[in-house]
Design a protein around this nucleic acid. Structure first.
Lengths: 325, 325
DNA sequence: AATGTTTGGTTAAACGTTTAACCGCCGTAG
DNA sequence: CTACGGCGGTTAAACGTTTAACCAAACATT
């Protein structure tokens, strides 16, 4: 690869001058500028970001840590983040933590070594390690003392409960997300709060955000009759769907099902999932914007942005009212 | 962030010595080594990979370019690549090309600037730009003159045709992937070859690898009767599934459907897709291994590895024989 | 005892940028 | 005519490593 030196030699100027025309960091005469640009083409020069990083302390690289790419919730987010970052001149280092908090920490460490300017983090751990040498903005799962962008999980819970009530359900079961995650806690709280007096929560079961339901959850389906199962996320809803199907229980005729997230698959599955939508791509883009703001201005007060959620009605939940009347 | 200099001062040795203990690049007495290690802890030293890169010419960073993370075929691959790369001490720069060849090229350029040691590429373009300053290994879509790891697409096509014949189908329609992609071409060729004389290919339609079917494809479903539709990939099979559902055509009763890839969703969808499986994660891991071999030994002869595929029977394709007998 | 040889450490150059400091020159103002 | 302030360019230092070259002291070999 050719360097500034090569360009300089080719153009018959000093390397400083070349640098200045490339960065517009100083006035340079049109004649020289033209020569330099020509030389750049001639030797096929590409700036060496490594050297630049070393000198300036900026790497123009961001980090992204996701818990598990295999969970269809994350790719959409990741894509938005990557595209936005690249549009703004940043490359993106990806860490997939494989649902392992250890890995996640190691990832943070790795990103530090690589000198990223900042990282976007969808955490599994419930707190930020201290003395990180870069700013971070957390996405999806609220954490204290960090910039964050989240959906309004609490409101999502409320929406679900209201919808359940509106459909005339009374006895419901809750497939909760990991309660170590603020997002899952908030959804639960929202639901409970809005359910108060109107809905009877017959059982609650904590399950991982995964396509594989633990057997205790499976057993609940048959043991205690509920007319509606509301699940922690679309993925677990879909897992439940499959389990119910295998158990010969039909949705929504025998039991209704509600999801959360509105991942693309929610509308692809049969019956299509009624769920609550969060603006994933927007959140991803906003996260990188926020991170860059923080990088520009490290002293600004930390803030959280919460995005509105929206109920989307499809066909996995059934109204009891009509069938009763 | 503390530097070698800080560690050296703290330990009362030269920075060269510190470097040597950290890299085991020279014998150092146990006493000094202990002091250095202690100093490292004391000042919370982390190696600065940027500086190291500049000096050594190695960045310990790999690039990964995927066409579209939102297509569920890729996350699994990406995860495998990332995990394997990290396990071997490499970080991974992700580029999502958003199905745009322009973006893809820009991404390659960006990776070059960042000085990656090599890149793993799932290309949309049909050839490798020349004078890339790093080695690349191509995955999934065969390209000439590059290292590659692929599934045996041709054999997959054969398997599909044989299976179709075994089930007693005769009139079939083909939802082909973009024929600019070698993978899609090979699948088609395999199918045609094995179909020869046994199957009548009533129509062929080229569609993108996406959840959205173009309308010409939709129209085919009703216009010309076939008993089986074989699709370019699971995603398009699922798209077809939905379209058929909306058209009130039931699968597999009225028309059978076959996929390709065996993405996780293939088994989640109803009816579960019969499809051909390729060992995605294995291929991802093998790709990074191959890339590293190439980095170690730039002169080795280029090679392609093709992986066996396997038919997996589920419930989207129907035997005609029984119903006829 | 004189002469290699090994051991354990240091010095300094180099990687490719950016950027502050410097400098010569030209045009203009006093 | 002198002084002065851009203008347009160059020089050189610095970023944090790695690593070749060097060196002193300890040790082994005859």
């Amino acid at each position: 690869m050719s360097t500034l030196k090569d360009v300089a030699r080719q153009a018959g100027v000093s390397i400083a001058t070349v640098s200045h025309v490339l960065n517009n960091s100083k006035a340079v005469s049109p004649g020289v500028r033209r020569r330099v640009l020509a030389a750049v083409k001639a030797v096929d020069y590409r700036r060496n970001r490594v050297a630049r990083s070393l000198r300036t302390g900026q790497s123009y690289t961001l980090g992204l840590i996701v818990p598990d790419l295999t969970n269809p919730f994350f790719p959409e987010l990741a894509q938005a983040v990557e595209n936005r970052a690249r549009a703004l001149g940043y490359a993106l280092l990806l860490i997939d933590a494989s649902s392992n908090p250890q890995t996640e920490l190691a990832g943070l460490q790795l990103l530090a070594e690589h000198g990223v300017d900042g990282v976007i983090w969808i955490p599994i751990s419930d707190q930020l390690p201290d003395d990180l040498p870069f700013p971070v903005v957390v996405v999806d799962r609220p954490l204290a003392n960090v910039d964050g962008v989240y959906a309004d999980h609490h409101q999502g819970g409320v929406l679900l409960a209201q919808y359940a009530h509106k459909l005339g359900h009374r006895r419901v079961g809750l497939l909760l997300g990991p309660q170590s995650l603020a997002s899952a806690r908030l959804r639960r709280e929202g639901f409970w709060q809005a359910a108060n007096g109107k809905l009877e929560i017959v059982w609650e079961q904590e399950v991982p955000f995964s396509l594989h339901l633990p057997t205790p959850a499976l057993e609940l389906f048959s043991s205690q009759a509920v007319s509606l199962i509301v699940s922690a996320s679309d993925v677990v809803a879909i897992a439940a769907l499959r389990a119910l199907d295998e158990a010969g229980i039909s949705v929504p005729e025998e039991v209704s099902l509600l999801g959360f997230d509105d991942i693309p698959w929610a509308s692809l599955v049969r019956p299509a999932l009624s769920t609550v939508r969060q603006p994933l791509a927007t959140m991803g883009e906003r996260a990188v914007a926020k991170l860059l703001e923080r990088i520009q201005n490290p002293e600004q007060v930390i803030s959280q942005e919460v995005f509105e959620v929206e109920l989307v009605e499809r066909h996995s939940a059934h109204s009891l009212k009509r069938s009763r009347s």
